[in-house]
């Protein structure tokens, strides 16, 4: 019996493995990370990835917080990804990014941006992941 036959495809002219995102490695200086905002069909949104980690500045919501904001602050007392927030809140990912856009602007939460694939992957990062998987 022979399996069906596929035909390989090739990278398109301009592969862009880097989404527009703030420089993550800019350490030091207590400079809060700049919030980049992208214009979407329903207004402006912070450029948040599924695995951007969100941390509450303080778990106690200000009196002005909406119920959604209060719930979100409580959830990310410890760092939590946008995907996890979406799952725990039972809200679509896009709705959570809209909520977070306001909260980032109001500095109620901070974002820790993910490490994304680059043309030349960082070998020490890959080695760290391999070590972590081996412990599983």
């Amino acid at each position: 019996m022979t399996p069906p036959q596929r035909q390989r495809r090739f990278p398109r002219a301009a592969p862009s493995p880097k989404p527009a995102e703030p420089a993550r490695k800019k350490e030091g200086g207590g400079n809060p990370e700049r919030l980049y905002v992208v214009a979407g069909p329903d207004g402006e949104r912070a450029d948040l990835d599924l695995v951007t980690l969100i941390v509450a500045g303080s778990p106690d919501p200000p009196p002005s917080a909406t119920p959604e904001q209060a719930a979100l602050l409580r959830l990310c007392a410890a760092p939590l990804s946008v995907a996890e927030l979406s799952a725990y809140l039972s809200l679509p990912f896009g709705v959570v990014t809209v909520l977070l856009t306001d909260m980032l602007a109001a500095e109620l939460v901070q974002a820790r941006f993910p490490i994304v694939r680059e043309a030349l992957p960082d070998r020490s990062l890959l080695e760290a992941v391999m070590h972590g998987l081996q412990r599983l």
């Binding site: 409580r74 410890a78 820790r112 993910p114």
Partner: peptide
């Protein structure tokens, strides 16, 4: 949107919380 009150939303179990030191995530 059917939003439950803040008190009724279970978050991660205590043992599932990431440490404050968690700086960045990667995905597969």
């Amino acid at each position: 949107m059917d939003f439950k009150g803040s008190e009724t939303i279970p978050g991660p179990r205590a043992e599932d919380q990431l440490p404050q030191t968690a700086q960045a995530a990667v995905k597969i």
